[in-house]
Design a protein around this nucleic acid. Structure first.
Lengths: 327, 327
DNA sequence: AGACTTTGTGAAAACGTTTTCATTGCGGCC
DNA sequence: GGCCGCAATGAAAACGTTTTCACAAAGTCT
C-alpha cells in the first residue's frame, strides 16, 4: 500500500489541492507550505509520475534515439544532450537502434506512446525519408544526419567539406590512389562520400568508393578484401571512428605499414586514435556543441511550432597525425 | 486534441472496455477483435502509457543506473541488459551517474517516482552502504559492485582472484616493483586492490597501492607523478579500462618503453587494447553474461521477493599481450 | 464607504486508461 | 423445461495526481 498525496494532505491537515500546490508552484502561504514539506518528510511520500503526467498532460521528457551506443561519438553527444536536458528540468529517455529501421520504428512509436515533449534522433536514411512523408505528432530534431531538405530541424557536420579536407590532405601528402569506405545507412555517410568524390575529381584522380555497415567488423572485412585486390589503394578515407578501427585492423592483418604502405584518415577523434602507432589523422567533431545545439533547436521548436525549418551546420577540425604522413 | 480509446471505441462501435480487452488480453470475440484492430488503424490511435501505467499499477519498466556511460564496459553491459529487458517485454530507463553520489540519489528517487518494476545499479561505495541501511521500495540488483554482504542481490566479477592473476602473471614475467592503481569510488576497486595485495605479499614483494577517480584523465595524472618519483615501479596494474588508457598515456609522456621500462596490465578487454603497441594484457570480463545474469536475478526477485539474497560471481579471463612480456 | 481585484484555500472534476461488476445470451445437464 | 455455468460485453468505478471552480477574506481603488 503506497502512500499518496491524500495521506500527505491528511498528515498536514490540508486538502490535496494545497499539497499539490505546495509541491509545484501555486499560491500557498508560507506557513502551510512548511507544514506540507514537513508532512512529506514524515510520510516519505514519493509523487507518482504516471499520475502527474496523465493529469498535467506534460511529460517533461525528451527522447534521444541514437544509432549505435557503442560509438563514442554518440555517447559523447548523449552526455551533452543529457546535461542540457537536466539543466532545463527535463528527463531523458535514451534509445539505441543499431541502425535497424525496425527498431527505429518501434522506438518512435514508443516515443509517441510516452507522449514525450520532443525527440532528438539520428535516423537511418530509410527512416528519415519515411518521416518526411508522414510526420509524427511530436517535434523531432535530427542529429548527425538529415532527411529530405526542409522536413525537420537538424544539426549536422559539414560533412562534404570535412571529407574534402581529408582527401586534399592525403593528396598533399603524396597519396594518389585514395579509396573511400562509407557507411551504408546514413545521409551523413552519403555526404561524406560526395565530399570525397568532388575532392578526388577536382584533383584529376579517380574515385574508388565502397559502402559497408558502419561498424568495425564490417569495415575490417571490407578493407581486408580491398587490400588484397590486384591494384589496392595507397590510402583510405573512413566514414567514422568504428570503421577507422576496422581499417587499422585490416591493415595490420595484411601486413601493410601505415602510413608508408597505406595512408589512413577518417572521422571522429576518439580517445584511442592517438594511442595507436602511428596516430590517426581524423576530423574532430564538436560533439558537445552538437548535443547542445540539438536541445536548443528542440526548445525553439516547442516555443514556436510553426517557425520555418532550421538546419545548423557545424564545421569539423582536421587533426593531423602520423597515419597520413608518408615518410 | 489527441485521440483516445473512446474514439477508437466509437469508430469500432463497441465500448472502451472491449477496445482495452482487444488490445491487451481479455475475452473478446474474433469478430470484434478484428473490428477494433481496424478502428485502431483507421484512427491512428496511440495508447497513452501514463494512463495505462497509472490504472494498471504496473510500469513494465526497469531502471539501469550505470556509473560511467563512456566506459565501454558499461555500454557493453547495457546492451546485454537491454536485450534481456526487451525479450521480457520490458522498457529500459538508462541513467548515468558519473560516480557522483548526489546523482545516484537523484536517480534512485526518480526510479521510485517512476514506479519502476526493478532497478539494476552499479553504485559507488557510499551509496551502496547507504542503501544497506534504508532500502527502497523497489527491488535492486547490484551489478559490477556490491555493498555490505547479504543486503542486495548482485552479480560481480571475482575481482580479487582476477587481480591476483594479473599480479602473478607480472611476477612470472620478471617484474618485481609492481604498483597498483585502483578506483577510489567502488567496492570493486577495493576488491581488486585486496587481490593485488595478497598476491604481492604471497610473493614476498612489497605492495605499492594508490587510488584515483576511475577515469583516464585522473589516472594519467596520477601515474605521471608516480613514474617521476625516485624509485618508480617497473610494472603497473590498473583497475579498469579507462585507467589503463591513462597509464598508457602517462608512460608515453614519460618516454618509458612498454613492456621493457614498464610492464602494464589491467582490467577490461576494450576494443582498442589490442591496437596499441604493444597490446595490453588484460582481464576480459564476461560482459554479456553479467547483464543477462542481472536481469535473471531481478526477475527471480520479483517472482519471490522473500527469497534469500543471492550473489553471482563470474570469473574473468586473462588475455596475455605484449605489455607484460619483458624481452 | 462601496465596488473590485487579489490571495489563499477546499471540493470536486478531469486526465485516459484498466478493471470490476452486472447483464445478457447460450449451451449443457439433470 | 428449468437451472447452472460460462463467455462476451457494457457501464461505471478506480488509479493518483493537477486543475478548475467556488468562495471567503483581505486589500486597493475611486
Amino acid at each position: 500500500m503506497t502512500i499518496g498525496i491524500r495521506d500527505v494532505a491528511r498528515a498536514a491537515g490540508v486538502s490535496t489541492a494545497t499539497v499539490s500546490r505546495a509541491l509545484g508552484r501555486g499560491p500557498v502561504s508560507e506557513a502551510l507550505k512548511r507544514q506540507v514539506e514537513e508532512a512529506v518528510r514524515r510520510t516519505g511520500y514519493r509523487p507518482n509520475l504516471s499520475a502527474r503526467r496523465l493529469r498535467s498532460q506534460s511529460t517533461q521528457t525528451i527522447g534521444l534515439i541514437v544509432a549505435d551506443i557503442r560509438n563514442p561519438f554518440f555517447t559523447a553527444v548523449s552526455r551533452a544532450v543529457e546535461d542540457a536536458a537536466y539543466a532545463a528540468g527535463m528527463r531523458l529517455i535514451l534509445c539505441n537502434t543499431d541502425e535497424d529501421p525496425d527498431r527505429e520504428a518501434m522506438y518512435l512509436r514508443l516515443m509517441e506512446e510516452e507522449r514525450v515533449t520532443g525527440v532528438i534522433f539520428a535516423p537511418t536514411r530509410i527512416t528519415a525519408e519515411k518521416l518526411a512523408a508522414r510526420d509524427l505528432d511530436v517535434p523531432v530534431v535530427f542529429i548527425d544526419r538529415t532527411g529530405p531538405p526542409g522536413t525537420h530541424d537538424s544539426v549536422v557536420l559539414d560533412n562534404a567539406a570535412a571529407a574534402s579536407l581529408l582527401v586534399d590532405h592525403l593528396i598533399a601528402c603524396g597519396y594518389r590512389r585514395i579509396g573511400g569506405l562509407f557507411g551504408s545507412t546514413s545521409s551523413t555517410a552519403q555526404e561524406r562520400r560526395a565530399g570525397y568524390e568532388t575532392a578526388i575529381r577536382r584533383a584529376g584522380l579517380v574515385p574508388d568508393m565502397r559502402s559497408a555497415p558502419p561498424n568495425a567488423a564490417a569495415a575490417e572485412l571490407c578493407v581486408g578484401g580491398w587490400l588484397s585486390e590486384a591494384t589496392p589503394p595507397d590510402a583510405l578515407v573512413l566514414s567514422n571512428g568504428l570503421m577507422l578501427m576496422g581499417a587499422v585492423r585490416a591493415a595490420r592483418s595484411a601486413g601493410l605499414g601505415v602510413p608508408d604502405d597505406l595512408g589512413l584518415a577518417g572521422f571522429d577523434n576518439d580517445a584511442w586514435t592517438d594511442l595507436v602507432e602511428p596516430g590517426l589523422t581524423v576530423i574532430e567533431q564538436p560533439v558537445a556543441e552538437i548535443g547542445a545545439q540539438a536541445m536548443s533547436l528542440l526548445f525553439d521548436r516547442l516555443k514556436a511550432p510553426d517557425q520555418p525549418i532550421r538546419k545548423v551546420t557545424l564545421s569539423g577540425r582536421l587533426v593531423v597525425r602520423g597515419s597520413s604522413q608518408r615518410g
